[in-house]
Design a protein around this nucleic acid. Structure first.
Length: 569
DNA sequence: GCCGTTTTCGGCCCGACTGTTTTCAGTCG
């Protein structure tokens, strides 16, 4: 798949054009890049079908450039732009407080091309000598560089969750704060968040701001105004807070939940209906009179839209469905009857089988599936054929005592050549076979795709475990043609895993949506290695909701009879 | 460069805060 490569080039072109102060084109390139980045189909296929211009944001000119890339591996317009601008824009733009305009000035005056040059210039206090720049700009950029170097760009959702809860309870105890809510990518349930956004309703915004910059663990106050402030915690996480009036709360939520592209589209829609929308409300364009703003629902209603769940607000076609009142009825935590893919002390888990069962009962689950490792990787204390027999015997015993349904199973490695280390006869004796890639992550795309598809086609596999192999902030996804994997999974009745571990969230929402469009079904896994993680299925639900899934798409939501039937191979 | 429920030409979302210099451009979300 060349989708990401092409998107990256278009983004880079947008950055350069912006630097050259070309009007409007940067946005056109970014729109196209984003659409290509999230395209479920291999763009070469789209090209072969002569449908490039059906991608939103792609017109004649960009289509030609994509064609050129597919044919030659290059886009000459990009090569030309690169020659004109020899600046490492990507890394410079990642520094907070530094945008295209300042980068341009630094380049023209001081020949700064990258972060290293910038650091040197700051050290020698050269920036201050440029008119319009002072000591503080230098200091801020210095801190920005340190930040970029020292902290991961994004925080895991699950790591942000306790911080969100602490901040909420910190503010909710004050009577002059009427409402306090989290927005931003956290509210949209993204698997990682870059920062946290909060909205408060209060008649005394200054007082809220004073409280905010003094919350425990603040390392730095980035900005402080009368209604909007930003701080950074000592762990590097940035937190923004905006205070609004009661009648503005809905429009403020809408704005701060985002995402940005969704906001742009919804504002354009407002304009087309002779309204204007900002964070303070929906207004009549001519009279400037307020039409709505107190709740999100009110605004959606006035725009003729069905309420859109935050997890869907990614400008991926949700607005169109909302206009037609045809949005999916998203799955919720309550719809989950049980969880797949759990480990115990039989392999690399921390708890015994019975401790895990007890916890599942406490969580009011109706079933649990045990899938300890079957592998030749020593570090996970894997099952082998001999130990598997004892494992199954113990589960049989526990089944008799348990109040909930227990599925037997294993998580087995898909070996480098696409084979599994257990015969089909033995595999068929298990209720749930999960097959995953745990070794040789660096295969070329073709080999990796063939490896996974071979396993799916030749073994009685129920679930493909963590299909991309990504470990967030740690290991990239392996190179694989996901579209082919999805198609093969569908053809062979293999459920795609939604792995709920906070560091995996694999498949994520975007990929789930693409797989759903191909017709795949999904199984929700906890991949729990202890009793605590057994409760983490809500993280997987976030992915499912971001992937537009309904109850019917997820095995875990079906009746037990239907689940058992679906697991017959 | 893209796009169309007024449009195939003329638009392209909107506002707060900072740092610098005295009225605003740049950045960010």
């Amino acid at each position: 798949m060349k989708n990401l490569e092409i998107a990256k080039i278009l983004y880079a072109m947008a950055d350069i054009l912006e630097l050259q102060e070309v009007q409007f084109k940067p946005r056109a390139y970014r729109n196209a890049a984003r659409a290509i980045e999230t395209l479920s189909e291999d763009i070469e296929e789209t090209y072969k079908k002569n449908k490039l211009q059906e991608i939103p944001g792609v017109g004649e000119s960009i289509a030609e450039k994509i064609e050129e890339y597919i044919k030659t591996g290059k886009i000459s317009a990009y090569e030309k732009l690169k020659k004109e601008v020899k600046i490492d824009l990507e890394s410079l733009e990642s520094i907070p407080g530094l945008g295209p305009k300042k980068i341009k000035i630094f380049y023209q005056k001081l020949n700064i091309k990258n972060i290293k040059d910038l650091e040197k210039a700051i050290e020698q206090h050269k920036l201050q000598k440029i008119s319009g720049f002072g000591e503080e700009t230098e200091e801020n950029l210095k801190r920005g560089i340190e930040l970029v170097k020292s902290h991961p760009k994004r925080f895991l959702y699950a790591h942000a969750l306790p911080i969100v809860n602490q901040i909420k309870s910190y503010f909710q105890k004050y009577s002059f704060i009427k409402k306090f809510e989290v927005a931003g990518s956290f509210r949209r349930g993204k698997e990682t968040v870059g920062d946290l956004d909060f909205i408060a309703v209060s008649d005394q915004p200054e007082k809220v701001m004073e409280l905010f910059i003094k919350i425990p663990d603040v390392k730095e106050v980035i900005a402080k105004g009368s209604t909007k402030s930003s701080i950074r915690l000592s762990n590097g996480l940035q937190i923004d807070l905006r205070v609004v009036k009661e009648e503005e709360f809905g429009s403020a939520l809408l704005y701060f939940i985002g995402n940005k592209e969704h906001n742009v589209e919804i504002r354009k829609l407002a304009l087309s209906k002779s309204y204007t929308l900002n964070e303070y409300g929906l207004f009549n364009l001519k009279t400037k009179k307020r039409i709505a703003g107190r709740t999100e629902q009110e605004i959606y209603d006035k725009l003729g839209l069905q309420y859109i769940e935050p997890e869907m607000r990614e400008n991926m076609g949700e607005l169109k469905l909302s206009q037609q009142h045809k949005l999916p009825n998203l799955v919720t935590d309550k719809d989950i009857k049980g969880v797949f893919h759990n480990h115990s002390q039989w392999s690399d888990g921390n708890n015994t089988l019975s401790e895990m069962i007890k916890k599942a009962e406490e969580l009011k689950l109706k079933f649990i599936s045990f899938n300890d490792h079957f592998s030749n990787i020593g570090i996970v204390n894997p099952l082998n054929e001999k130990r598997l027999i004892s494992y199954l015997k113990e589960i049989e015993k526990l089944k008799k005592k348990s109040r909930i349904k227990i599925f037997t199973g294993i998580e087995i490695d898909i070996q480098k050549d696409g084979t599994l280390a257990l015969s089909n006869n033995l595999l068929k004796k298990l209720d749930v076979v999960i097959a995953s890639v745990h070794t040789s992550f660096n295969l070329p795309e073709k080999e990796m795709t063939a490896r996974i598809c071979h396993a799916l086609e030749n073994y009685p596999i129920h679930i493909l475990g963590h299909p991309t192999g990504i470990v967030l902030n740690n290991r990239p996804a392996y190179e694989v043609n996901l579209e082919k994997v999805y198609e093969t999974a569908k053809k062979n009745n293999v459920f795609l895993e939604i792995n709920s571990l906070p560091s995996r969230m694999d498949l994520n929402g975007e990929k789930i949506k693409a797989a759903k469009e191909i017709g795949c079904k999904f199984a929700l896994s906890t991949d729990a290695h202890n009793t605590l993680e057994l409760g983490y299925f809500s993280f997987g639900i976030l992915c499912a909701r971001r992937g537009w899934l309904e109850k019917k798409d997820i095995l875990n939501c079906w009746n037990l009879d239907k689940i058992e039937k679906a697991l017959k191979k």
